[in-house]
Amino acid sequence: MDLLTLHHLTKTFGGLTAVKDVSFTVEKGAVVGLIGPNGAGKTTVFNLITGQYPFDQGEITFADVRLNGLRTHRIITLGIARTFQNIRLFQKLTALENVLAGRHYRMQSGILSAMLGLPAQRREEQEAMERALEELAFVGLDQQALTMARNLAYGDQRRLEIARALATEPRLLILDEPAGGMNEQETGALIGLIGRIQQRGVTILLIEHDMRLVMRACEKLIVLEYGGKIAEGPPDQVRRDPKVIEAYLGAEDEP
């Protein structure tokens, strides 16, 4: 079953066509990679999916719901969560508070119930706290729950962002260069984490430049160049595609 479908998506910024007639699907339960050279429009595609800005033409459907024109927070509540290429954590808040952001829309209480400290509000806070701690433990950051986000190591910040996204209980997780800036060992651990997220039944769509990660973790790749799709298929097939080699991979004999 297709969870996410992009249908002839086009986005222009002034005279520049950032995304040109792109169509692809993400099957439920899969790990799909979106790759391509710098400036190919990968992050723009992510931003269109999550409604950061509107697109000019086309259609995006997620679990049979049309996402066109929906605001970002609405799209998140439908079951899509994301991380950012340049890590966007709440720097001066603790790791726990960061993950609680993901629990936000799963909670209900407002101004009055908080001021009055109603039992339902307290229970909800307690549950959110426990759930957030679980997500921190899932990515291996439970010991740093009370550390301010900006004081975490770089790799930990990346994992914290994933924990925050997972706290929304997404059906689709969108990761923008999750291995960016990570060393070999950290990347290895990340591949393991991606596998465990997939086991939870979460579908994953990711942008990544690290070819080892892409080849090992993804079942399907979509290749963009100059805003247009030039190839799609399983990693082995894409790796041998002459158009992809010419556009992006360069050397044929990459590991």
């Binding site: 998140i76 952001a101 993901g102 936000h104 101004i111």
Partner: peptide, 30 residues
């Protein structure tokens, strides 16, 4: 003080720290 330690209070802090990330975590920033 109670408000600060609640869902509402945290949402305000998310807003202050990074609006894009707040909206991207499901917080209705508007």
């Amino acid at each position: 003080y109670r408000l600060k330690k609640s869902r509402f209070g945290r949402a305000l802090n998310y807003l202050r720290e990074d609006e894009v990330a707040a909206e991207g975590s499901g917080v209705n920033t508007a």
